[in-house]
């Protein structure tokens, strides 16, 4: 009886064509895939697949251009906002986004991040914050929580010698060029829906040249946190969200 439901007129959800059919290389349960998908869905829904140019970072999502079915450039570590600036300045009518992790955006690329926002580049920055360096195998990130263990803070992050976790989204929200800054998550259905709405809003702002839109997604890293995906999402709620509270940080003035 349920088989007869599986036909095109009953379809309510399928993978968007703005993503390719490649199998994602991410670890099981990693939030990257979901974040990719909702961004791709927004591109699909706004019908801007032919007008969008993305910039991939260095980090776990270095191969993001395999998965987004849009034209993309792979930037050097931390330089995505500069590369995106170069693209947007010569193609002001295109939709340009960067997709960056915490090491890329908030450590090695801090200058590029801040100055792109400060110039109010009309780009979307999608920032995945999981508090750890994934690709290189679990080293400390600028956003690693106090006391959190990583392979370069094996006894926990000691803020006296290693500095405090960096709330870069709050920081860029201070800049006049930043039009919209928000912090979201993608581990639960309600969060995914909200995060997608935020990304959609940001892309629409870009159409009207409002300035930089900055969407942080607090995410998990099951492999390097050494947890199952479901445990990692629970750990994220209990530990990451109190320090990185979800919600809008800067919203356009009416």
């Amino acid at each position: 009886m349920s088989e007869n439901l599986v036909n095109p007129e009953n379809l309510v959800y399928k993978k968007t064509d703005a993503m390719t059919d490649r199998v994602l290389h991410y670890c099981p349960g990693c939030g990257h895939g979901t974040a990719h998908r909702i961004l791709a869905e927004v591109i699909d829904e706004l019908q801007i697949q032919d007008q969008t140019i993305g910039v991939a970072p260095v980090g776990c999502s270095v191969l993001a251009y395999y998965y987004f079915n849009v034209d993309m450039q792979e930037a050097a570590h931390g330089r995505a906002p500069a590369v995106a600036t170069g693209i947007k300045r010569v193609f002001p009518e295109k939709y340009v986004f960067t997709y960056q992790g915490d090491g890329d955006l908030a450590a090695i690329g801090t200058a590029e991040t801040i100055h792109a926002c400060n110039r109010g580049e009309n780009i979307l920055v999608v920032f995945i914050n999981n508090g750890i360096y994934g690709m290189t195998g679990g080293q400390m990130a600028p956003t690693t929580l106090e006391g959190m263990k990583s392979s370069t803070s094996p006894f926990g992050r000691d803020v006296k010698s290693m500095g405090s976790p960096l709330k870069i989204t709050e920081l860029v929200a201070q800049l006049p060029g930043t039009y919209f800054a928000t912090r979201q998550a993608v581990h639960k259905p309600a969060n995914v829906r909200k995060a997608k709405r935020a990304i959609k809003k940001a892309m629409e702002y870009q159409k009207h040249n409002k300035g930089t839109c900055f969407v942080e997604i607090v995410s998990n890293c099951p492999s390097n946190w050494k947890m199952t995906p479901v445990q990692s999402n629970e750990w994220m709620e209990e530990n990451m969200f109190p320090f990185y509270p979800l919600g809008d940080i800067k919203v356009p003035e009416k």
Binding site: N10, V12, K14, L24, G33, R37, V192
Partner: peptide, 24 residues
């Protein structure tokens, strides 16, 4: 057979492997 086609599973799936149908 309790599926209601809410698509919650599909929208949290990091690998986009779930397609959802719902009766009209």
């Amino acid at each position: 057979s309790g599926c209601t086609g809410c698509a919650n599973c599909a929208i949290v799936c990091p690998d986009a492997v779930i397609t959802v149908y719902r009766e009209k």
